[in-house]
Lab assay of single mutants.
Amino acid sequence: GLTEEQKQEIREAFDLFDTDGSGTIDAKELKVAMRALGFEPKKEEIKKMISEIDKDGSGTIDFEEFLTMMTA
C-alpha cells in the first residue's frame, strides 16, 4: 500500500491538474497536465487515457481513479 506521504503527494498532483476545483479531472485538464509534463497528446490519446482510467464511465477522472493510475 501507499504511505500517507505518498498519498498526499498524489493528492497535490491531482489538485494541480483539477484546475477548476471540481474534484475530477476532465479531458481538457488532463491535456493541460500532460503538456506541463512535456507531452503533446492528441485528442484521441487523451480520450483513450481517460477511458482506460475512468472505471465508472463518467468521462472524468476522480481521485480514486487517479490514485489507481499513479500506482499501477
Score class of each variant (00 low, 15 high):
A72S: 09
E5I: 10
K43A: 14
K55L: 08
F66K: 00
Q6R: 15
M69D: 00
I25K: 00
Q6W: 13
G23F: 02
L16T: 08
G23L: 02
T71S: 10
E12N: 13
A33T: 03
E5Q: 12
A27C: 13
K42D: 13
A72N: 10
E40R: 10
M69Y: 11
A27G: 05
F66Q: 00
D62Y: 07
Q6I: 07
T19C: 13
L67I: 07
F17G: 13
K7I: 11
D15H: 06
R35D: 08
D18S: 03
T3S: 08
L2F: 10
I10S: 01
G57F: 11
I53V: 11
T24G: 04
I46R: 01
T68W: 14
L30G: 00
E45Q: 06
E64H: 11
F14I: 01
Q8P: 03
R35P: 03
E40K: 12
A36L: 12
R35F: 09
E4Q: 11
A33V: 14
D18I: 06
R35K: 14
F17Y: 10
E45C: 15
G57T: 05
S22C: 08
G57C: 13
F17C: 12
S51P: 01
S58H: 07
S51N: 09
F66D: 00
T68P: 00
S51W: 09
D26M: 12
E29A: 11
L37D: 02
D18A: 04
E45G: 05
T71F: 10
G23M: 03
E12S: 12
L37A: 07
I25T: 01
M34G: 00
I61S: 00
G38I: 02
I61E: 00
S51L: 13
E5T: 11
P41Y: 15
L30C: 07
L2D: 02
E65P: 01
I53G: 06
I61P: 00
R11M: 04
G23Q: 05
M34F: 15
E64Q: 08
A13N: 02
S22N: 08
F17P: 00
G21Q: 07
D62M: 07
R35A: 14
L2G: 03
M70W: 05
D62C: 10
K28W: 08
D15E: 07
D56M: 10
I10Q: 01
L16S: 05
L37E: 03
F39M: 04
I10T: 01
E40N: 11
R11A: 02
S58V: 08
E29N: 12
A13V: 14
E52Y: 13
A36T: 05
I10G: 01
E64S: 07
I50W: 07
G21W: 05
F66L: 02
G1F: 12
T68A: 14
M34T: 01
E52V: 14
E12V: 10
F14V: 00
I46P: 01
F63T: 00
I10A: 06
I25C: 06
M69N: 01
D15T: 07
K48Y: 07
K48E: 03
E12K: 13
K42V: 08
I10K: 01
L30S: 00
D54P: 04
R11F: 03
F17V: 15
K55F: 06
E29D: 14
K47V: 11
K47Q: 14
G59H: 06
D62T: 15
Q8D: 07
D18V: 06
E29H: 14
G1T: 13
K47S: 13
K42I: 08
T71L: 14
D20H: 05
I25G: 00
I46F: 13
I50C: 08
T3K: 04
P41D: 04
G59Q: 06
L2M: 07
E40S: 12
G23D: 01
S51R: 06
Q8A: 11
D20S: 08
A36R: 06
T68C: 12
E64M: 07
K47A: 11
F14C: 04
M70T: 02
G21D: 09
M69W: 13
M49V: 05
Q8R: 09
E40G: 05
E5V: 10
K42E: 13
A33G: 04
D54G: 13
L67R: 01
I61Q: 00
L2P: 06
K55Q: 09
A72P: 07
Q8N: 09
T3Y: 04
K7F: 12
F39E: 02
F63S: 01
P41Q: 03
I53K: 07
L16K: 13
I61F: 10
Q8Y: 04
D26N: 08
T71M: 11
S58R: 11
E44R: 04
T3D: 03
T3L: 03
R35N: 13
F14H: 00
E52N: 10
A36Y: 15
V32H: 15
K7C: 11
E5A: 14
L67W: 06
D15L: 12
L67K: 02
E9W: 12
D15N: 13
I53S: 05
I10V: 06
K28Y: 09
A72Q: 09
D54W: 08
G38V: 00
K55I: 08
T19D: 09
F14M: 01
T24N: 03
L37Q: 03
D62R: 15
L2W: 12
